[in-house]
Design a protein around this nucleic acid. Structure first.
Lengths: 338, 338
DNA sequence: ACAAAATATGTAATCGATTACAAAAGTATC
DNA sequence: GATACTTTTGTAATCGATTACATATTTTGT
């Protein structure tokens, strides 16, 4: 059975297609009685709007592309949930692509916007290659691209992020407040903005507190479990072991703790460990992880709202360029006095 | 700068739009020289096909909807990765929606197919409400719906799944082979097909091996960490504790182990524990988890391929209705002789 | 009661690509 | 060189909704 079209509805309601269209998308300009007849006809015919037709005519795709570096990273799930929720409410669909695949297939990201597949783009990957970033920022559609969580320093895209600096300071102060004075840090990947900022804030806060910081206490990681394990081996090998470690991500912290426990070190008895992000698993981990909580659902919702605002009313220049969302300290059992 | 259209290309190449269109989508019918001229014109104009226009004319959305019960579940990530990879290769986009949101917003799932937003649907949620399932199966587009991993018993949708029965038997035999004779099981949620089948296979295999099975050794769970914790409390409270536990999911196993270790029981010293799925985290867990591995990437790829075959050549009735993919035993450190 | 304004509806062009059909150009065959 | 056939290209209709503009109808003001 073919689905019915505006024409069919118009025939049944005995009006023109223009009236049906108006009745559905802009009801106030249609008289009460006509509106009712159209509504009945819609019900009778089981009419569903054809998105392809509307998209062509209105030059809108009614969908947004979300770009992830890695679908498997649990950090993104709640963000997607938030984005999806807001988009669905506005009748928009959510397209997903991983930056990896796009690169593999030689496809250009900007094509999604240029060829009417998506009206906007939310990028969750700050590690885009330079040429990709340049291509995006020079594109005519650049104002429809928004970064969330991560961002690219040089480019001037709108973005949503959390208080990375403040979060880091809160973390360090939590450890300091417990009595720790020898505090180490496992960083994110070199070149990553988040890792960089958290590291800078860490160094700055230690300086403010007048705490010593040995060079070897800053261990380079990359947000992953595996990197956490390696860092643990470094820690074990140290002569003067820090009594607390602030990790740039929960996954790092988990890997660190896991490797320690394989070598019979206990957290927080031998060393206090903190993460950053407060992913779902942090609460279930053993020991439950003290972390800096980012409201990922909120990040997703905010990103989607900002982007939709730009898509729907692109003229207004009172548009937010960057939104910074608060973080909070979640104290669990992986930290204690030294 | 507006993007250029077929018309623009045609003008530059000095041919008709029909020729340009053919030159791009069906080059063999166009002469070598013309094809070259068109190619040059495309490059000169920076032409990009307009998907909305093509979709309208061809009655194809060139996209597939993937329905998840829960974006946050790490089990799905690799499946999405597999789906995405195959779709991208064929020029299809991947839309994502969660069954929860769709239900909340009162939207009907089938609308995605009816209103030209998607050409097909991959459903990763076997727990759809009955009315939704009925709506889907009675739809004209029902042949474009495919279930992956989970499925609905009564309905006759094509599906991709893994060897749940065989996997369960392998698991039980692994434990039996280590010398365990008192083996318990933590099930999936009541009513879930996967949980049901794994439970049945578990009971059957124990019977085949002639092993005793006390009623309390089958603990009802729901695939989550939390359920695993509860089951651990049950286990602790038992007089005659089983020496091995086969869990219907890795998350159950992790919750179970976590709760045990909070009560100073050690795995595998006090009890051997197995999971099912082999999610990424299983390898990093402490202890690393013995599990039944499903190749989730492969499940995703297979699902996407099957669905595309149905979309592209819907006539052929030599189409696979169900593909069952093999599983394998991954032995790590959570199991040992009693 | 009539003009002016406001409201409601219809007509038809439009978005940009695809494709049935027609026409033209080229090749082979005798 | 004429005929039949194949290959290549063009013309124009089409997909289904939206919307500028025109027209018809109702309301308002005096």
């Amino acid at each position: 059975m073919k689905t019915s079209t505006l024409q069919d509805v118009a025939r049944v309601a005995n009006v023109s297609t223009a009236t049906v269209s108006r009745s559905l998308s802009n009801p106030v300009v249609v008289s009460e009685s006509t509106r009712r007849r159209v509504a009945d006809a819609v019900k009778a015919t089981g009419y569903r709007i054809n998105h392809a037709a509307r998209n062509l005519r209105t030059q809108r795709a009614h969908s947004v592309l979300v770009l992830l570096p890695d679908l498997a990273n649990p950090f993104f799930s709640a963000i997607l949930e938030g984005i999806s929720r807001v988009l669905a409410r506005q009748g928009y669909s959510m397209l997903i692509a991983s930056t990896q695949h796009v690169h593999d297939s030689g496809e250009r990201l900007i094509d999604y916007l240029d060829d009417a597949r998506a009206d906007g783009m939310i990028v969750l990957d700050g590690a885009l290659e330079t040429d990709v970033v340049e291509m995006l920022s020079s594109a005519s559609q650049a104002e429809r691209i928004l970064f969330a969580c991560e961002w690219v320093e040089d480019a001037n895209f709108p973005s949503v992020r959390c208080e990375n600096r403040t979060g880091t300071r809160i973390a360090v102060n939590h450890l300091y407040g417990l009595g720790h004075t020898k505090i180490a840090h496992i960083t994110g990947p070199t070149g990553n903005v988040l890792g960089q900022i958290r590291k800078e804030a860490f160094v700055a806060e230690l300086a403010d507190l007048g705490l010593e910081l040995k060079a070897e206490w800053i261990m380079t990681g990359d947000f992953t479990l595996a990197a956490g394990c390696l860092a643990a081996q470094e820690w074990i090998a140290m002569n003067d072991r820090p009594t607390a470690v602030f990790c740039a991500s929960d996954q790092l912290a988990m890997g660190f703790i896991a490797e320690l426990s394989r070598h019979d070190f206990k957290v927080p008895d031998h060393v206090s460990v903190m993460g950053f992000d407060d992913i779902d698993l942090a609460e279930q981990f053993i020991p439950p992880l003290t972390s800096i909580r980012q409201d990922r659902m909120m990040i997703g919702e905010t990103a989607a709202k900002m982007l939709l605002a730009r898509i729907v009313t692109p003229s207004e220049e009172n548009l937010e360029r960057a939104t910074v969302l608060p973080v909070s300290l979640v104290i669990r059992e992986s930290t204690s006095p030294p």
